[in-house]
Design a protein around this nucleic acid. Structure first.
Lengths: 224, 224
DNA sequence: GAGATTAGATCTACCA
DNA sequence: CGTGGTAGATCTAATC
């Protein structure tokens, strides 16, 4: 059975930190991600109505449910004194912050900087200081809503920021990918209406993903 | 005649820098902003359809047009090697970068970090290195689309980041405000359809802005 | 239940 | 004229 592929880029020594202290947490994330079928939905974008695109809602839900089952906390509130940085963080356990980021690209640097402040200020989230941040993104290959963050973009940005030593919190950036020209298991979700998070129907299925003709092209998804 | 009010917060010694080197550039910005009528439009948000909200499109256009007339460049391209930070910056002149930011709040830290990299890397934008960044935001008082950045939020975030010395580029953050209980000149724009930037009709008018009963409430705008 | 706020979803505009 | 990408606009969901 073909599983989702993941790719990882580490910043600020997160590789060493994970191997020495957060191996268990990482293993649970890795297992969760690689057991996940590709979640797709229909686009409503003008001109490509109905075309399959990456489904952030379904993906988000799958990961969150699985991690909560493994003892992770979700929607961890940010303390009052730091509420200008936001309301909550997606998931966390034992000082590991986990953010899924499938929304528009500026959220990456927003997540990064607030994590940096959690790290430096040593404030407690879920009774723990922040030791490590893991950010999950999708590969550029997937057709998706415009301006949503993709892994390669995130790698470039964090690499440049690392070069100029702008941040110090250890970060592992994770990208989700699929194989080309293989039967891929998918979950196709139909939502109540545009922008609804209310799933009316969820179908299992398969698709084949082809690389576009030009190397710059997004992949083409053919539902079987 | 009542003009838009502006408030300013400076970071990393931008105050000194402006007074000593960029007084002319600042004066043009200040004059432009304080000559601007409040731009409003109708919301399409469920439950408050038709209610007046801050109009980012109209505001943006007004500022940009005026600055271009004063010799500023707009949509300054980011060099190829730094394209992972984006395509262009809103406006600039003589090493001063200007960003209007009325979109969702994470764009603030996105703009901040890419400006920091422009500053540190000394790359040329419009044949100039980056000396100063000016970011224009709207006050929290204005009803607006959900999750759009507001000045007070930006002040909090940048203040915290300054405290931990995360960034070094000089920044002046500008907030737009209006007086309460006064006749305020407005421009009400009607767009072709939802999300359209195509203005069908633009009416001059007046409104009165009242502070909400609870201090936490957004202001109430009454069109005259 | 009304209101505010952030998180996230995801569209249109525009330019190369 | 179709494609791809970023910028910006701006909605719904969820929570307090």
């Amino acid at each position: 059975m073909l599983k989702i592929q993941i790719e990882v880029t580490d910043f600020n020594n997160s590789n060493f930190l994970i191997n020495s202290q957060f191996n268990n947490e990482w293993n649970v994330i890795q297992t969760t991600l690689t057991s996940m079928p590709l979640h797709l939905k229909a686009s409503s974008q003008s001109g490509i109505e109905g075309n399959p695109i990456f489904d952030p809602i379904g993906t988000n839900e799958f990961i969150e449910n699985n991690l909560v089952r493994e003892g992770w906390s979700s929607h961890i509130p940010i303390p009052k004194a730091y509420q200008f940085l936001g309301k909550d963080i997606d998931c966390g356990k034992s000082g590991v912050i986990l953010e899924f980021q499938f929304s528009n690209y500026p959220f990456l640097l927003n997540n990064l900087l607030r994590s940096e402040l959690f790290f430096k200020s040593k404030i407690h989230l879920n009774s723990q200081v922040t030791n490590l941040v893991i950010i999950i993104t999708k590969g550029k290959m997937f057709p998706a809503s415009n301006s949503t963050l993709y892994y390669e973009q995130a790698v470039s940005q964090l690499t440049a920021l690392t070069k100029y030593k702008v941040f110090h919190v250890p970060i592992r950036l994770v990208g989700l990918f699929e194989e080309f020209e293989q039967n891929i298991n998918i979950v196709w979700s139909i939502y109540e209406k545009q922008r609804s998070r209310n799933i009316i129907e969820q179908k299992q299925g398969q698709c084949i993903i082809s690389q576009g003709i030009k190397p710059t092209r997004r992949a083409i998804i053919r539902i079987l």
